[in-house]
Amino acid sequence: MNTHPTATAPDGLPRPARRRQRWFGARDPRSAARLAIWVMVSAAGVQVAFALFGTQSLIADVGSWLAAALLLVVSGLLARTDPRSPDEHGLLALLPLGGAVVLFGLNWLTSDTSAAAQVFAVLPTLWAASQLRPVGAWCTAAFSACSNTALVLHLEAWERAIPDAAFVAATLAMATALLTAAGNRHERLVHRLREQATVDPLTGLVTRHVLDAALAGAVGGGQRHGTALVLVDVDLFKTINDRHGHPVGDDALRHLGEVLRQAVRGTDAVVSRMGGDELAVLLTGCPPDVAERRAQEMVAAVRAHPLPLAGGDCLPLTVSVGVAQSPTHAGDVRTLYTAADAALYRAKEAGRDRAVSAG
């Protein structure tokens, strides 16, 4: 019996599901689902119009009604389902493939290789190229091109079928290439914007937004030994800026961030810049006595690592630190901040260059 747990990716998904999503998933499942519903309802309306007003055979009429019903049923199911769930398994990629199969079947039944029919068959590829990741988009384009080639070769003379098939295949390839490239550029831009929102550009530390999210999860997640919040304030930071200039002040903040990162273990700590000259450290799985000791170690580490200056001198740095622990000093994030801030104020009042614990 296999007792090994399923390997998971960093986002919590099993690795096979994460791989399927990366290859065949949608860039934005909700947006992809909304657009798919709109396209399928519109296509169903077109099929109904063909059945009611078109001059086609009985078999084609039946096919149009069945296709319209299928499109409406799938649209209804998709509207009632959270698209993120099927997207985790790459199932949204089946929508354009299914659409291509339906269109291929209708065109085969009606022996329709007109320009209108072939242009209509491009819709699944356009949806896939604009909504899916590249692998899924190119699979849809390849299937549409192959099915259209089989159709025209079966129904038309070779001298006409080959140019038609080549033209449609080239159109599908160019549309897929352009839309997937645009999607990739958009994702890179979004990734950079998210990085700017989560990483402080000066120190490279995470922003308060990230710290707050981690703190809320730690305090509300029932950590076995509790969670500690350490607030760190640079002593006499305004004096550093006035005497040495703001560039040195910026260097001091970067240096301090690196010292704090070295002083804590990255696996159970989050170091953040709160704003200005104030930093914070989140310590998970940390009882009160350990939190106090770690805070004292941070103060000592800063004192032991002065800031090297351009002329070869070193600028001594000290910090005042306030530490509070949940659930000992606070039961929620807001009161934890309040307790740590009060402890930080007492550290400054007591002469700076020290750590003070709440309570």
Rank of each mutant, 00 (worst) to 15 (best):
P316M: 03
A169R: 03
M298K: 02
F50L: 07
R27H: 15
T171A: 15
V135H: 06
S114K: 11
L92I: 13
A340Q: 03
A44T: 08
R22D: 15
V73L: 08
G217M: 07
T328K: 10
L205F: 09
A51M: 01
R261Q: 06
L260C: 02
G12I: 12
T6E: 04
L315G: 00
H329Y: 12
A214L: 12
P201S: 11
T149W: 10
A150Q: 06
R30C: 07
A228P: 05
L126M: 12
A69Y: 04
R346D: 08
A181T: 13
L52V: 10
V232F: 08
L126Q: 05
V299W: 02
A169E: 02
K238V: 14
V299I: 06
E156D: 06
V101Y: 07
R261M: 06
F143R: 15
E297K: 06
P306Q: 09
S320A: 10
R30Q: 12
L132G: 01
A17N: 15
V62P: 06
A182S: 11
R352N: 05
R133I: 09
L260T: 11
R188Q: 13
F50H: 09
C139N: 10
T318R: 01
R294H: 12
V102Q: 05
A33D: 00
Q262W: 13
V270W: 02
S111D: 15
G12Q: 09
G25V: 10
L229Y: 04
R303A: 09
P163Q: 08
V73R: 07
G331C: 14
A43E: 05
S57M: 03
F53I: 07
G54C: 00
H305F: 03
D87Q: 03
R19S: 07
Q21S: 10
T149P: 08
D251Q: 14
L229S: 04
T180Q: 03
A182M: 04
L109Y: 05
P288H: 01
C139W: 11
W158G: 04
W127A: 01
D11C: 11
E292D: 08
F50R: 06
G76H: 11
F24W: 07
L282M: 14
D112K: 03
A121E: 01
V234M: 11
L309D: 13
V102K: 09
L153C: 08
F50D: 05
T149F: 01
A33H: 01
A121S: 09
R261C: 02
A69W: 10
W65S: 06
H246Q: 01
R224Y: 02
S326I: 00
G183F: 05
W158H: 11
T207N: 10
S130F: 09
L193R: 10
V281F: 07
A60W: 05
S144D: 10
F24P: 00
L52D: 04
G105A: 11
V302A: 00
W158R: 12
V234D: 02
R346P: 00
W108M: 12
V264N: 05
P163T: 08
L172M: 08
G245N: 00
G331P: 04
L92G: 02
D82A: 14
G245Y: 06
G221S: 11
A69I: 13
Q296P: 00
N241M: 05
V259D: 03
V248C: 07
L211N: 01
C314Q: 14
L77N: 08
D61H: 09
L202E: 11
G54P: 00
A100T: 12
E297M: 15
